[in-house]
Amino acid sequence: MSNLIRVENLHKTYVDATSDDITTPIEVLKGVDIEVQQGEILAILGKSGVGKSTLLHLIGGLDRPTSGSVFFEDRNIHAYSDRKLDQFRNLEVGFIFQSHHLLPEFTALENIAIGGLIARKNVSETYSSANEILDYVGLVDRSNHYPSELSGGERQRIAIGRALINQPKVILADEPTGNLDRKTSADILDLLWDLNDRLDRTLILVTHDHGLAQRTDRIVHIVDGRITDQNQIVET
């Protein structure tokens, strides 16, 4: 397998605006190096506040690092202009968050289609793809329902569908089952694994759940902003 993503010496420092002492920066990531291969399922494991989500945001181009690089298909995405980075997020990456983060004013179908509309794709083709995705996530009969009319599991399925609309190469999931019960979590994870299996999508999961991490191809441990063990191959 070839490298899809390569993270080199990534640093991220925040100035905590809510703190009284704004001159003291908080170093969240302290030199992270990771390589992710095409088609791999990678778990980033760590306790709360160690910088897992920050790392995921930087890999997905949602935030800029203080220093270091993220290479996607050997291109440094943080050397991109803002506009190019927006395009990268739109076309190459699909985000799934712990809280589904669906848009409440839009139906299930529209929530899925909106990424295609951002990319200025053909409207009818986008909606037809969105319908296919709805079918794939098993919610075709819910297409005209608003998020408030869906259950937690259904919302997360729509969120997964939304991440797929532009056929991205990598799905970045931040605690995707964190808000769900055991049964629903299992269904959602099955869907994610199916994505990897059938559609060959690379999957990076951020979690603090060891059980979930055990299901992935590889686990990267992050402690206090540093990778402590990144080559733990999970035996299946």
């Binding site: 949602l62 983060h101 848009l103 409440p104």
Partner: peptide
């Protein structure tokens, strides 16, 4: 605000 964040995460530019 949160919806703006979601749209930005989906690749919507500042201009959009």
């Amino acid at each position: 605000t949160r919806e703006i964040g979601i749209l930005r995460s989906m690749g919507s530019s500042k201009m959009k």
